[in-house]
């Protein structure tokens, strides 16, 4: 547990912090540029706002994937971690949690003011935020699989994006549907279910993939 917390706090303060800051900038840029591209009509903006916020969050999350394992793999730290008392699954989980806290939690909070900027009502904006809180963990968890698969691949970052995109499609669909309107409660439940399912599966898959690299 101590090791888990140590890893989490180091990743949060180090590699993921920069990626998270970049992600926030990206997210804000999309929200500001969107009305300039679409036109300022409130009803149009409000209609597409949840989807746009979700897409921006997904792409911002993918930005941080590259830094999840790569540095620790290259410096040999991942090897030390793999041989320590902490199971590699827990290492993956700590890294996913750090990624989520740094790259996605700020966006879920920011989606409230950004929703208001895009002419959503207060209730709808809160709906987007809640849907993101419950649904985006799936991005970090599925993302870890992509990051693990492309650990030492050429142009790994871009490749991880291509691999994670199909995986993140269901969370994106349920998430943007859960943000308001008809069927939002059941979509919210399905999105949360996907996050929980990812929590059950992804750490094991990612660590299995990492082991094949470490043992090679």
């Amino acid at each position: 547990m101590k090791a888990f917390v140590a890893l989490l706090s180091r990743d949060l303060g180090g590699s993921q912090l920069g990626a998270g800051g970049l992600g926030v900038l990206f997210f804000l840029a999309v929200v500001v540029l969107l009305p300039l591209g679409i036109g300022p009509r409130g009803d149009v903006l409000a209609q597409i706002a949840p989807g746009i916020l979700w897409i921006a969050a997904l792409l911002a999350a993918l930005l941080g994937l590259e830094s999840m394992f790569r540095e620790d793999f290259e410096t040999g730290a991942l090897e030390v971690m793999a041989m320590s008392a902490l199971p590699l699954e827990a290492v993956v989980l700590a890294k996913c949690l750090a990624h989520w806290l740094a790259c996605l939690l700020p966006l879920a909070i920011l989606s409230v003011p950004c929703g208001l900027l895009l002419h959503l009502s207060v209730g709808e904006s809160l709906g987007v935020a809640i849907a993101m809180l419950l649904g985006t963990p799936a991005f970090s968890l599925f993302g870890s699989i992509g990051a693990a698969l492309t650990l030492d691949a050429r142009r790994g970052g871009l490749l991880a994006l291509l691999l994670v995109l199909p995986l993140s499609m269901p969370p994106l669909i349920f998430g943007s549907l859960a943000s308001g309107g008809e069927g939002s409660v059941s979509s919210l439940l399905l999105g949360t279910g996907l996050s929980l399912g990812a929590l059950a599966v992804a750490p094991f898959l990612s660590s299995a993939v990492l082991w094949t690299r470490l043992r090679a």
Partner: peptide
Amino acid sequence: ALWNAIEEPTLAARAAGAL
């Protein structure tokens, strides 16, 4: 793309298989 990105065939096979 994953097959082509990893040089060593056994490693590439494991990664691509998982995918």
